[in-house]
Amino acid sequence: MRAKLDSLKASPVIGPLLAVLGIGMMLYGIHREEVNVVFAKAIKICLECIGIG
């Protein structure tokens, strides 16, 4: 099990594969319009973040 995990970590394909998966997830998130929630939150002063809300 440990050896398998080590070889998986050393594999040169796992990083690029996850990067591609990440791009895919981002595109799906954009398609679901999650990006609008991010934008709406980011353009208003976040009262919780600054300690007022």
Binding site: L18, G22, M25, M26, G29, R32
Partner: peptide, 10 residues
């Protein structure tokens, strides 16, 4: 959060 999780994964 696919968009943010995908960004962090990338």
């Amino acid at each position: 959060a696919y968009y943010v999780a995908g960004f962090l994964m990338l």
